[in-house]
Amino acid sequence: TEIRININGVTIHVRDASEELKKLIEHLLRLGADEKEIREVLHRWEK
């Protein structure tokens, strides 16, 4: 699944996002995570 996240005008594009990762990101956004925090989570997730 491919997702695009727009945070304050900055688009983060994620290829091959699992449903689990998608739910995690949606949850973090609801909690008010910023772009830097989302990128950090994505970076750690890929490892």
Rank of each mutant, 00 (worst) to 15 (best):
K47Y: 02
T1K: 09
R44F: 12
E20T: 10
I3Q: 04
L31Q: 14
I5Y: 00
D16P: 07
S18G: 09
L21E: 02
L42R: 01
R39E: 12
L42D: 00
R44C: 12
E46F: 08
N8I: 04
E37N: 08
L28V: 04
H27W: 06
D16V: 07
E46A: 12
I7L: 10
H43P: 03
R44Q: 15
I12K: 01
L21K: 03
K22P: 01
E37H: 14
I12G: 02
A17Q: 05
G9R: 03
E35S: 08
I5T: 03
E26I: 08
K23W: 10
E20F: 05
K47Q: 14
R4I: 13
I38V: 08
L28R: 06
R4V: 12
L31R: 12
L28F: 07
N6V: 12
S18P: 15
E20V: 08
I38M: 05
L31P: 01
E37T: 15
K23V: 14
A33E: 02
L21P: 00
L28Q: 05
L42A: 01
H43I: 11
K23D: 11
G9I: 03
K47W: 02
T11C: 05
A33W: 07
I5P: 01
E2C: 09
T1N: 12
E35G: 06
T1M: 11
L28G: 01
L29I: 15
D34F: 03
E46N: 07
K36V: 13
E2R: 05
I7G: 04
I12F: 00
I12W: 00
E40F: 01
T11V: 14
L42C: 01
I5W: 00
E46C: 05
T11H: 15
H13M: 08
R30M: 13
G32C: 02
H43M: 08
K36S: 10
N8C: 04
E20K: 09
E19T: 10
L21S: 01
E37I: 12
L21V: 06
E26D: 15
R30H: 12
V10K: 11
R15V: 15
I12T: 01
H43Y: 03
I3Y: 01
I3D: 04
D16K: 11
E40S: 04
V41P: 00
L31K: 13
I38P: 00
K23L: 15
K36T: 12
E26G: 03
L29M: 11
E40C: 05
T1Q: 13
L21W: 02
R30L: 15
V41T: 12
E26P: 00
E2L: 03
H27A: 12
H13I: 10
H27P: 02
D16I: 06
E2V: 06
E19R: 05
E37F: 13
V10Y: 00
I5R: 01
H27Y: 07
E46L: 13
K22T: 15
I25T: 01
H13N: 09
W45K: 02
E40G: 04
I38G: 00
R44P: 03
E37W: 10
E40W: 01
R4H: 14
A17C: 04
E19C: 06
E40Q: 05
G9T: 05
V10T: 15
K22S: 13
N8R: 06
K47V: 14
L24M: 13
K36Y: 10
E40Y: 02
K47N: 14
E40A: 07
V14D: 02
W45Q: 06
E40H: 06
T1P: 10
E46Y: 04
R30A: 14
R44N: 14
R39A: 05
A17N: 05
D16H: 15
S18Q: 10
I7R: 05
V41Q: 12
K36H: 11
I5L: 06
E26Q: 08
V10G: 08
E40T: 05
I25D: 00
L42T: 02
L29R: 04
R30D: 13
H43A: 10
E40M: 06
N6M: 09
L31G: 12
I12E: 02
E35W: 14
L42S: 01
V41S: 07
T1E: 12
R44D: 15
H27V: 07
R15S: 09
I12P: 01
D16E: 14
E26R: 04
V10C: 05
N8A: 10
H27D: 14
A33I: 07
T1W: 03
E19N: 11
D34L: 06
I3N: 03
K36Q: 12
E2P: 10
N6L: 09
G9M: 04
H43V: 09
N6F: 04
E26S: 06
I3M: 09
K36N: 10
H43E: 15
V14K: 01
E26N: 08
H13C: 10
L21Q: 03
A33P: 02
A17M: 08
I38A: 00
R15D: 12
H13E: 09
K23R: 09
R39M: 09
L29T: 08
E35M: 09
V41C: 04
K22V: 14
L24T: 14
H27I: 07
I7C: 05
N6A: 11
R4N: 12
I7N: 06
E35A: 11
E2K: 06
V10S: 09
R15P: 15
D34E: 11
R4D: 09
L28I: 06
I5K: 01
V10Q: 10
I38D: 00
R30P: 02
H43R: 11
S18D: 10
L42P: 00
E35L: 14
I5E: 02
H13F: 03
D16Q: 12
R4L: 15
K36A: 10
R39L: 13
K36C: 01
I25K: 00
I25A: 01
L28Y: 07
D34G: 13
N6I: 12
E20R: 04
I25V: 11
R15I: 13
R30V: 15
K22M: 15
I7Q: 05
I38F: 06
A17T: 11
H43F: 03
N6T: 12
A17Y: 08
H13T: 12
D34N: 12
R39W: 06
E40N: 08
H43K: 10
R44Y: 15
H13A: 07
E37C: 06
G9F: 01
W45L: 09
I25P: 00
T11Y: 02
D16N: 13
E26Y: 06
K22W: 09
T11R: 07
R4G: 08
K22E: 11
T11W: 01
I38Y: 01
I5F: 02
L24R: 11
R15E: 09
R15K: 15
H13Q: 08
W45H: 11
I38N: 00
I12S: 03
A33D: 01
R39C: 05
I7E: 04
I3P: 03
